[in-house]
C-alpha cells in the first residue's frame, strides 16, 4: 500500500510537468498580442509596450519563457498577471469561493443522484423510474453553455427565486443556483450508474442469502445492496471532479462568481499567460490528488482490491 502511494506520487510529478508544459505551450500558441489585448481598444505607446515585453519576457523564445516560468513556480512564485496583480493574491480570493461552489455542486449532485438512483433501481419500470429517465436525458442533452444562461434567465431574472449573480462574499444561498447548474453536469451519469448498480446487485446471490437470513427489506437494501452499489458511484464522483472544474469556467463566468473559473475565463480572453498557467497548474495538482484519493477509497470500499 505504502509503495503504491509512493509510486503514484512519483507518477504525479511527471504528469504535473507534462500538463503544465502543455498548458504553457497552448497559451503561448494562443498569444497574438497580449499587450494590446490588455489595453483593449486604446492605443499603446511604444515605450510602455517595450517595458512590458521585457518584464514578462514576451520577446524571448518559447522554451526560455517556460524556463523562467517553472523557475518561479518551483520556488513558490506564481508570478504576476499581465494586469499587474500578484497571481498568488488572486488565488487567495478565488479558490475559497470555487471550493465552496464545487463542494456544494458535488454534495447536491451526489445526494440527489444516489437517492433517486436507489429508488429507481428498486422500482424499475415504475412511473418514478421513467420520469427520472426523461429528466436525466433532458439534462444530459443540454450543454452547460445553454443550461447556465437558461437557469439564470428563468430562476434568477424572471422568477427571482435566486440572485442572478454572486459576489466575493457570496453566501451559500447566493451560490445555490450556480451550484445546481454545475451539479447538473454530473448528476445524470451518477444517477444512471447508481440505478444500474442497485438493479444489478438486487439480483445477486448474496441478496438472496440476506433474505434467507430473515433480514428486513430495509436492511437488505440499506446495508447489503447499498454498500456494493456505491463502489462504482464513488469512483465516478471522483472522476466527475475534473468535469466540474471545466464546468466551473462556464458557470462562474455566466453567474459572475469571482472564482477560479471566472479568472481563467478572463485570463484566456485577455491572453494572460501567467494567470492561465498558474491557475491550471493548481487545478492539475488537485485533479491528480483527488484521483489518488479515489483509488485509495476504492480499496477501502471493496476489500477484494489490494494495491501492491
Amino acid at each position: 500500500m505504502f509503495r503504491y502511494i509512493v509510486r503514484r506520487l512519483l507518477q504525479m510529478v511527471l504528469t504535473f510537468f507534462g500538463a503544465t508544459f502543455l498548458v504553457f505551450a497552448l497559451t503561448f500558441a494562443n498569444q497574438d498580442d497580449p499587450i494590446q489585448a490588455l489595453a483593449g481598444e486604446r492605443p499603446i505607446t511604444e515605450n510602455l509596450r517595450q517595458t512590458l515585453m521585457e518584464r514578462y519576457h514576451l520577446d524571448e523564445p518559447f522554451l526560455v519563457q517556460y524556463w523562467y516560468y517553472m523557475k518561479g513556480l518551483l520556488t513558490g512564485d506564481f508570478g504576476t498577471s499581465l494586469t499587474g496583480r500578484k497571481i498568488i493574491d488572486m488565488m487567495e480570493t478565488a479558490w475559497p469561493i470555487t471550493i465552496k461552489l464545487g463542494l456544494m455542486a458535488i454534495i447536491i449532485a451526489a445526494t440527489i443522484a444516489v437517492t433517486a438512483g436507489v429508488i429507481s433501481g428498486i422500482r424499475r419500470g415504475s412511473i418514478f423510474d421513467n420520469a427520472t429517465l426523461v429528466v436525466t436525458l433532458i439534462i444530459l442533452s443540454l450543454p452547460i453553455v445553454v443550461l447556465a444562461p437558461l437557469a439564470q434567465l428563468v430562476f434568477g431574472i424572471q422568477l427571482k427565486w435566486f440572485p442572478p449573480t454572486a459576489t466575493v462574499n457570496a453566501s451559500l444561498f447566493d451560490l445555490l443556483l450556480p451550484a445546481l447548474v454545475l451539479g447538473s453536469l454530473v448528476i445524470a451519469t451518477e444517477l444512471r450508474v447508481t440505478r444500474s448498480a442497485v438493479a444489478e446487485n438486487l439480483r445477486s446471490d448474496y441478496v438472496r442469502t440476506a433474505r434467507a437470513k430473515g433480514l428486513s427489506r430495509k436492511r437488505v437494501i440499506g446495508v447489503h445492496v447499498l454498500r456494493n452499489s456505491l463502489i462504482p458511484v464513488v469512483t465516478l464522483i471522483g472522476v466527475d471532479i475534473g468535469g466540474l472544474m471545466s464546468g466551473a469556467i462556464v458557470t462562474e463566468r455566466i453567474f459572475n462568481v469571482p472564482g477560479v473559473g471566472f479568472n481563467l475565463a478572463r485570463g484566456i480572453g485577455t491572453e494572460d499567460g501567467p494567470l492561465v498557467v498558474g491557475f491550471v497548474s493548481i487545478l492539475v495538482i488537485i485533479f491528480l490528488v483527488v484521483n489518488l484519493l479515489v483509488d485509495l477509497l476504492y480499496a477501502a470500499l471493496d476489500p477484494r482490491i489490494r494495491y501492491e
Binding site: D205, Y206, P303
Partner: peptide
C-alpha cells in the same frame, strides 16, 4: 427464516456478500 428453516446455496462465493 434462519430461526426455523435455513438454507445454504450452491456457490458460496457469490452467495456471501463480498464487501
Amino acid at each position: 427464516r434462519a430461526n426455523h428453516i435455513a438454507m445454504i446455496f450452491q456457490d458460496a462465493l457469490s452467495a456471501l456478500n463480498p464487501v
